[in-house]
C-alpha cells in the first residue's frame, strides 16, 4: 500500500474547481485511490475519484490529507495527485 500526505494549497479548500480537478485526475488512473483527512482511520477513507466525496470531506486550505493506493504505478499516481492538491488552483484565475 502506497501512502502520501498532501497539504491543501487552494485557498478555497478542496471544493469547487480544485475538487473537480482532483476527481478527474484520480479517475484517469486505473487504481483505487482513496483520500482521508490526516488522523482519520484508513477504513473511513473516501474514493478520490468521487467529486461528491471530496466535497463531503470538507478539507480546508492548509489541512493535511492522506492519499492511499495499491498496485502498479501507485507511487507515481500519488506523487502526481499530491502535487495537484498542493497547487493553488484559484490563483490561476
Amino acid at each position: 500500500m502506497a501512502e502520501t500526505i498532501a497539504t491543501v494549497g487552494s485557498t478555497v479548500g478542496l471544493h469547487a474547481r480544485p475538487a473537480a480537478l482532483l476527481a478527474e485526475a484520480a479517475a484517469d488512473y486505473d487504481l483505487e485511490i482513496t483520500i482521508a483527512l490526516e488522523g482519520e482511520p484508513a477504513e473511513d477513507a473516501l474514493d478520490a475519484a468521487s467529486v461528491l466525496s471530496l466535497m463531503g470531506l470538507g478539507a480546508e486550505y492548509g489541512q493535511k490529507v492522506v492519499l492511499r493506493a495499491e498496485g502498479d504505478g501507485a507511487d507515481e499516481a500519488l506523487a502526481n495527485l499530491k502535487q495537484l492538491i498542493e497547487t493553488d488552483h484559484d490563483a490561476e484565475g
Binding site: A23, D47, S50, L52
Partner: peptide
C-alpha cells in the same frame, strides 16, 4: 464541469 462529474461520480 463539476456538475458533469457528479453525473458519473463513482461513489454515487
Amino acid at each position: 464541469r463539476a456538475t458533469a462529474l457528479m453525473a458519473k461520480d463513482p461513489t454515487l
